[in-house]
Design a protein around this nucleic acid. Structure first.
Length: 406
DNA sequence: TCTGGGGTCCTAGGACCC
DNA sequence: TCTGGGGTCCTAGGACCC
């Protein structure tokens, strides 16, 4: 059966939520940012976008292009709450709801659309309900697969509703610039441009052999996308079959640091967060990555593989310190990151040695306290030193309970 | 006065084994 | 003594997404 997929995409989500909860912000150019000094624009209202404010700009830049800009420090709780409520709304139309990010969701309505008068009707109803309950605009894209649904939304936002039917796909794609495709960024577009390929139509007509020799496996994928083909399923929350691949945290420090004890203190904090999350998800990791960004913004990473997987913050920390000790830092450090990969599901077996068992019980106790009384109620003494204001939630965040593989 | 944070996937070179 | 090639694992980096 031909599939019918909806993509619901909130318009300027964080900014819209802020304008809704504070009426004095409505109709004004606003930007939602993190709490620290070294922050960037996470989302800007359409009024701000019209004046040139873009996601990723630092505050100085944003104020330059739009002096009347109102800057709002983001409130994570509002966005996560709204996201959770939106999910409940979507579930009224189909059980196949994939929360793709905090402000985007795919709905597979193939088997339920007839109950509601068709895909466009569902799109209209969802838009109306979102407006009524939350006061914000959403764009709905509809297509025979996720790729086209996403494209339909991108082409009709803000406050849009568009259905690209299967038979219309070639016509829509013919003169569409390749970078409009989901997965084709600036670099790939430049690459294709040098081959004389600028539109999806041109890309679709390029022999697959040419693309494969140039881009490898990605080339075959490009050709399929340019034809509007995409088999990827809508994966409902809780139905994920794939495991998480990596867990990491990074932070831009309030000030550049060069003293090793300070660097280690930040790293212990990061290791604590990473291993805490690994334990919550029930994963242990073997690959440990240390990410460093210098004051000059030069960024690099070093990794090592452990003999056995771990979810213990101090084992992780020891590995990170070994990586650090192997480096000669040439500049003050602006950002530090710790990531764990090669994850495997925790078997839950008892530790071989009593010492490990005691350690595990200690970690479990700390985790319980932190879960009950709020994160970082109890921490290792060495992590107390560095202070940092929380930033705005990443748009890729998903609410607890709908995160994959929990 | 500069430039966030969470991920996934792919590539390429070197080590090592058969 | 000198020659080969395939496969896998590991590490570093980059493109891309929200």
């Amino acid at each position: 059966m031909e599939r019918v997929i909806l993509l619901i995409d909130m318009d300027a989500f964080f900014a819209s939520v802020e304008q809704q909860s504070n009426p004095s912000l409505r109709g004004k150019p606003i930007a939602v940012v993190g709490a620290g000094k070294r922050t960037v624009v996470t989302t800007s209202s359409y009024e701000a976008r019209a004046r040139g404010v873009k996601t990723g700009m630092n505050l100085y830049e944003a104020k330059q292009v739009c002096p009347e800009l109102t800057v709002v420090v983001g409130n994570n709780h509002k966005y996560t709450y709204t996201c959770t409520k939106l999910r409940e709304l979507y579930l009224q139309y189909t059980p196949d709801v994939e929360i793709y990010s905090v402000d985007e969701a795919f709905l597979d309505v193939t088997t339920t659309e007839h109950l509601f008068g068709g895909p466009l009707q569902i799109g209209k109803m969802i838009k109306r309900e979102i407006k009524r309950r939350f006061g914000i605009n959403a764009t709905v894209g509809i297509g025979p697969n996720k790729l086209i649904a996403k494209l339909a939304a991108d082409l009709s936002k803000p406050d849009g509703l568009r259905w690209i039917k299967k038979q219309d796909v070639p016509h829509v794609l013919e003169n569409l610039p390749v970078e409009e495709l989901w997965g084709v960024g600036k670099r790939m577009a430049e690459h294709l441009g040098r081959l004389g390929i600028r539109t999806c139509g041109e890309l679709a007509r390029t022999p697959v052999g040419v693309l494969r020799s140039r881009f490898g496996i990605v080339g075959e994928h490009l050709k399929r996308m340019a034809q509007g083909l995409d088999d990827s399923p809508v994966v409902a929350d809780g139905e994920e079959t794939e495991d998480v691949k990596s867990i990491g945290h990074s932070m831009t420090l309030p000030e550049d640091v060069h003293r090793m004890p300070e660097i280690r203190a930040y790293l212990l904090l990061l290791c604590d967060r990473v291993s805490f999350r690994a334990r919550q998800y029930g994963y242990k990791g073997r690959t440990v990555t240390l990410i460093i960004r210098y004051r000059s913004f030069e960024t690099f990473s070093v990794r090592k593989k452990l003999d056995t997987p771990t979810d213990d913050s101090h084992r992780l920390f020891r590995a990170v310190c070994e990586l650090l000790d192997g480096l000669r830092l040439r500049e003050p450090v602006r950002l530090l990151g710790v990531s764990m990969g090669s994850l495997q599901r925790q078997s839950g077996q008892l530790a071989l040695f009593p010492e490990q068992d005691r350690r595990r019980r200690l970690l479990e106790t700390m985790d319980r306290i932190n879960l009950r009384h709020g994160l970082r109620s109890i921490v290792w003494a060495a992590t107390l030193e560095p202070k940092r204001q929380p930033g705005v939630i990443s748009p890729a965040w998903r609410p607890e309970g709908v995160h994959r593989s929990l």
